[in-house]
Amino acid sequence: MKRIAQIYLIIVTAVICLWQLPWIYNFFTVEAYTTPFILYSSVVDDFVVRKTENKKIVCSGLDGTTYTINQYDSILPEYQARQLAAYDCLPDTLFGRAVSLKMLTEEAISMRIKPEMVFGPQIPLYQLMESQSGRVDFEMPDDVFRITDSKIEFVIKDSNKVNEPKSQMFTDALSDAGFVFPAVEIAGNPTSKKRYDNGYLITDSRNCLFNLKMEKGNPNVQKIELDQQIVPCHIFVTEFTGMHSLGMFFDQNGKLYVITMPEKEIKMVDIPPVDLHADEVFIMGNIFTWTIRIKNDDTVSWYAVDAQNFAQIKSYSQPVGYEYVKGLDFEENGWIVPGWR
């Protein structure tokens, strides 16, 4: 018995040392690292870096060319439209296309995908909003839904009871659209702080993709045609103000796809596969180009892609500028999971 107790003690002591000693070392030695803010400029056809040095904003190209803040605004007119418009410097046309401040601001997109958003602990209950309420402001629904092995169930918040007629109606609508229960992935943006509602993107047990909306209290289910080899694994409903996309998803190989609107066409984004377990994705875009930043513990990469066909224009990578001693860590994407990190 004493021998078993000693083995237990040795294991626990080793675990605590492997966990706490690297942490203490890193706490005292690791220096702060700020990822530079980089955007692709169609004007100079290169990435432009903006960072703060000695409390001053410094802008430069990757080749070392330095820019004043005004030059920075002018080589990124699609991003700095408000600044340019304030001083009446916003051009009428950009790259042969007529533009306005309203258009540029409405078409600007920004999206961040962190591993914990994808893999973190989530309660499998969802709120389906009314897409055609006739009101400007959205209201949160008075029920939530869950998808079981054989149906979709709406539970009324006030009574904690299942709304059987609504559940039956939506189950039938899904089944009629070819949905085979249960669901594998369910994605939506249940928030009242948005301009319009794209409902939910859901994959069924055969990995077919469906768009579920509620319009005037009735279900609207549409199947989105996919190439059979594409399995949507991590789905995001976008609801960008420009209304050019319904959503995005990463497939089983980590490739990123955009579901365009209104034709609901699937377009692959020409960037390397993403490992969402480790990579954080940040997208900033406009009507001409998107700059996609992919960052993990070792490297940070920027990709410029065309906003229409998502073909890659340029890329740039640099190592993450800090080093730390790896050790036993228990936190991963919001879960408590032991690992060597």
Binding site: M1, K2, I4, A5, Q6, Y8, L9, V12, G120, P121, I123, F330, E331, G334, W335, I336, V337, P338
Partner: peptide
């Protein structure tokens, strides 16, 4: 470590033996 609801779910398999295994230590 965290108060995030349900965050410990994947770690219950080792937390339970860790907690009850400590019952061996008084033997030492």
């Amino acid at each position: 470590i965290t108060d995030t609801p349900g965050a410990y779910l994947p770690s219950l398999w080792w937390l339970v033996p860790l907690a009850f295994g400590a019952a061996l230590l008084p033997v030492i």
